[in-house]
Amino acid sequence: MTAERLVLNAQLAQMLKGGVIMDVTTPEQAGIAEEAGAVAVMALERVPADIRKEGGVARMSDPGLIRAIQAAVSIPVMAKVRIGHFVEAQLLEALKIDYIDESEVLTPADEESHIDKTRFSIPFVCGARNLGEACRRIAEGAAMIRTKGEAGTGNVVEAVRHMRTMNREIRTIRDLPREELTGFCRDQGLPYEVALKVREAGRLPVVNFAAGGIATPADAALMMQLGCDGVFVGSGIFKSSDPARRAAAIVQATTYADDPEKVLEVSAGLGEPMAGIEIPTIPQEARLAERGW
């Protein structure tokens, strides 16, 4: 990836700011998401809640399904590859989708190395639980970051934890004397060049979205008020009782996150949200956020 291409890719993510990216599993759902005001869709065979329930190895989606979803909408189409599975990424690049999510929601293909994203022209978004993970992904060529949260749970607690952790760590290095940054990066496993940029910017130098467990308009507004640039909603929309209405409400709540009256207005009468899962009831090995490093 040339430096110019990396900037162009980060700039597409900038155009998604303040928006909602929705998981969809059919062209019909993609159409519903676009109509409701999604800024992009994530094309998947199964939403995270079903991946969690059904188990087994979760892989890149069927290219035929992704093509059908690309044909159904004008907004950007994203799709997921397994962590470290650079050939799945090569396929999605050949498919000319708009963004690749190297995602812990799928079963990792490599437990030691993430994809070298600088070898691609296509943009990547990656999950992060903290500043170290975010900086390492950016150093590898990610043009956009999202919190991992705990996908498929309808429980926002992990996304909140990851965003608060990231903000706390950003404040720490923002206030460090520059000469202490080198030692800090050594101890924390941070790539120095990216950390230096974060210190100067006082935030991540790329767009950072919330993801993992967002199920209600209030969840989306919470993540926006915590400083996210936008929101991914996975299972939360199409596992609820009235997806079109809930999707439109989450779009409104993301834009007007700072306006409680507006969020209140769109939160009424949405029907049942997706059923949620308490994190402590999930066995350690089934926690998706633990994947990648």
Binding site: M15, L16, K17, G18, G19, V20, E34, E35, A36, G37, A38, V39, A40, S74, I75, P76, A248, V251, Q252, T255
Partner: peptide
């Protein structure tokens, strides 16, 4: 500004 026009249209109308 730039963004997604369907999204902006919904929000403008809303």
């Amino acid at each position: 500004p730039g963004g997604e026009s369907t999204c902006l249209t919904r929000l403008l109308h809303g």
